[in-house]
């Protein structure tokens, strides 16, 4: 089992607390640079769209937010599965730390989509499969957080919410494929499409940079939140007192 020692070592709170602190700036700085570059590229350099004019620029916040809403949920579900199977407390902490960030990105995706939908589609909201499944994702995040805070015993709260996170993962393929399985008002995928690109290069690179930037931002925030979560869980441990006294 020698190959697993790094895994178990990572799960030890003192070790992880230090690693997270070291990793944080390596996520934060590239994220800041990428997001600023992508904002300039998307809002200034990219040409207006042939149909939507300047309004299409909403995509530079909308699509990366929607990507994050699903990426973070996948992170949460995988962490929860690991936590349930290997009884790893740190993995429960990952899911707990990620949930509010994911909920906010989901809200951002819904809100920006709504602002764009009014002028372009002619409506703020429709109950089509894509929009509805994304709204369910927001409720899954909120349900996860509500369940955690409603159970007093931390261990039981961890397990119950982890089961919810694993069950909810079924929504991710539904969100992604909803635009293909059913007739929806929401358009199909632009960048994950195989074949000829549906977007020109000068419009595409800021979008990809923004997605990577948001992902790294999540990495940085997750490190900070995880350190806080570790402190909360280990508040009586001797190592923490030594660590904080240093």
């Amino acid at each position: 089992m020698a190959t697993w020692t790094w895994f178990h070592k990572l799960a030890s709170p003192p070790h992880f607390y230090r690693i997270a602190g070291m990793l944080m700036p390596w996520f934060a700085w590239p994220a800041a640079i990428l997001i600023i570059a992508a904002l300039y590229g998307g809002l200034v350099l990219a040409p207006p769209d042939y149909q939507q004019g300047e309004g299409f620029r909403m995509v530079y916040v909308h699509a990366p937010s929607a990507w994050m809403s699903m990426f973070i949920y996948a992170t949460m579900a995988i962490a929860s599965a690991i936590a349930l199977i290997w009884r790893m407390k740190l993995a429960h902490a990952v899911a707990a730390a990620a949930a509010p960030v994911g909920a906010w990105f989901t809200f951002a995706a819904l809100a920006t989509g709504s602002l764009w939908g009014k002028p372009m589609w002619g409506t703020w909201w429709v109950w089509d499969a894509r929009l509805t499944s994304e709204l369910i994702l927001l409720f899954l995040y909120l349900g996860f957080m509500a369940l955690r805070s409603s159970i007093e015993d931390p261990q039981r709260a961890d397990r119950a919410s982890a089961v919810l996170a694993v069950v909810g993962v079924i929504n991710l393929p539904i969100i992604h494929y909803s635009v293909y399985w059913w007739n929806t008002l929401h358009q199909g995928a632009t960048i994950t499409k195989i074949g000829k690109p549906s977007i020109t290069m000068d419009m595409l690179w800021p979008l990809l940079a923004m997605m990577l930037g948001f992902t790294l931002y999540f990495g940085a925030v997750l490190m900070i939140r995880l350190r806080a979560e570790v402190i909360r869980r280990e508040r009586n441990a001797a190592w923490l007192r030594e660590e904080l006294a240093r």
Partner: peptide
Amino acid sequence: EEVLAKHDENYMPPEVAE
């Protein structure tokens, strides 16, 4: 009673579209 526009997944500058 209501008409909504359905956007497609294509994004391009006006010159390219032309």
